[in-house]
Computed example of a mutant assay.
Amino acid sequence: MRPFPDVDDPAGLVARIATGKDRSALAALFGLYGPRVKSMMLKLGASDALAEDLVQETFLTVWRKAALYSNQRGAASTWIFTIARNLRIDQLRRQSNKPYEDLEKVTLASDAPLGSVMIEQQQVIERVTKALALLPQEQQQVVQLSFIQDMPHAQIAETVGIPLGTVKSRLRLAYERLRPMLDDLQ
């Protein structure tokens, strides 16, 4: 027999904590999830002592915020582990010893691509466009719908008014024709 009869219903335990600040429900949750939360903290790089402190802080938060839990938004275990993870993140932020920089003095590299990259991209686009122009019209159409408009094969079949198998065979034939022309681009 288990020491806590309600461990099969963690959401019920959280509800009991929320309604009446039931210490036995908290003890049951702690017995069920405490070792798991500690293990998670150790895996996240916390020392043994820090892991134990974070476990206690996790269940103190569960005690204080039990009324905020909703089983419609997820399992009680997910809620508890999220609290624990957030406490670990907060702890890591507090211990960070990086000095803060004045944002006005920080210079960032431009996100714009280099000129040579843009030229290479343009050349690739031109080659692909020329290769596509060599395909029969029905193959061009399914390739454009599939890759440019990102349509699923079933929607292409419906749009063009052809069977799904025909869409797939036209794409396969197009690949076979394009592969030798564009093989060096991979």
Rank of each mutant, 00 (worst) to 15 (best):
residue 1 M to K: 12
residue 1 M to F: 11
residue 3 P to T: 04
residue 6 D to I: 08
residue 7 V to L: 03
residue 8 D to P: 04
residue 9 D to S: 13
residue 11 A to I: 05
residue 12 G to L: 01
residue 13 L to M: 07
residue 15 A to E: 15
residue 15 A to L: 14
residue 15 A to R: 15
residue 16 R to V: 07
residue 16 R to G: 10
residue 18 A to T: 00
residue 19 T to C: 09
residue 19 T to G: 12
residue 20 G to A: 10
residue 23 R to C: 08
residue 24 S to M: 10
residue 25 A to F: 07
residue 25 A to D: 06
residue 26 L to K: 04
residue 26 L to A: 03
residue 26 L to F: 02
residue 27 A to P: 04
residue 27 A to Q: 13
residue 29 L to S: 03
residue 32 L to G: 00
residue 36 R to F: 06
residue 37 V to K: 15
residue 39 S to D: 13
residue 39 S to R: 15
residue 42 L to M: 12
residue 42 L to N: 08
residue 42 L to A: 06
residue 43 K to C: 07
residue 44 L to F: 00
residue 46 A to T: 06
residue 46 A to D: 15
residue 47 S to M: 08
residue 48 D to C: 07
residue 49 A to Q: 04
residue 49 A to R: 06
residue 50 L to W: 07
residue 52 E to H: 04
residue 54 L to C: 12
residue 54 L to M: 15
residue 55 V to N: 10
residue 56 Q to D: 14
residue 56 Q to L: 12
residue 58 T to A: 10
residue 59 F to A: 04
residue 61 T to R: 05
residue 61 T to M: 08
residue 61 T to S: 10
residue 63 W to N: 09
residue 66 A to W: 12
residue 69 Y to K: 03
residue 72 Q to K: 15
residue 73 R to S: 13
residue 74 G to A: 02
residue 76 A to W: 07
residue 76 A to E: 12
residue 77 S to D: 02
residue 78 T to M: 02
residue 79 W to M: 00
residue 84 A to L: 04
residue 86 N to M: 04
residue 86 N to D: 06
residue 86 N to L: 01
residue 89 I to K: 14
residue 91 Q to H: 11
residue 91 Q to P: 11
residue 92 L to P: 06
residue 93 R to N: 07
residue 94 R to F: 12
residue 95 Q to I: 09
residue 100 Y to L: 14
residue 103 L to D: 05
residue 104 E to R: 02
residue 105 K to V: 15
residue 105 K to C: 11
residue 106 V to P: 09
residue 107 T to L: 11
residue 108 L to F: 05
residue 112 A to N: 10
residue 115 G to R: 01
residue 116 S to M: 02
residue 117 V to E: 14
residue 124 V to E: 10
residue 124 V to S: 11
residue 124 V to K: 14
residue 125 I to L: 14
residue 125 I to G: 02
residue 126 E to Q: 12
residue 128 V to E: 06
residue 128 V to A: 15
residue 129 T to G: 02
residue 134 L to S: 08
residue 135 L to F: 00
residue 136 P to L: 02
residue 136 P to A: 09
residue 137 Q to F: 11
residue 138 E to V: 08
residue 139 Q to P: 05
residue 140 Q to C: 05
residue 140 Q to F: 09
residue 142 V to A: 02
residue 143 V to H: 00
residue 143 V to I: 15
residue 148 I to E: 10
residue 148 I to Y: 14
residue 149 Q to T: 08
residue 150 D to F: 09
residue 150 D to W: 06
residue 151 M to D: 01
residue 151 M to C: 08
residue 152 P to A: 12
residue 152 P to W: 09
residue 155 Q to T: 15
residue 156 I to H: 05
residue 160 V to Y: 07
residue 162 I to H: 00
residue 164 L to H: 14
residue 167 V to K: 01
residue 167 V to Q: 01
residue 172 R to C: 03
residue 173 L to T: 01
residue 173 L to K: 03
residue 174 A to Y: 05
residue 174 A to E: 04
residue 175 Y to L: 05
residue 178 L to W: 02
residue 179 R to I: 01
residue 181 M to G: 04
residue 183 D to H: 03
residue 184 D to T: 14
residue 184 D to L: 09
residue 185 L to I: 08
residue 185 L to N: 02
residue 186 Q to C: 11
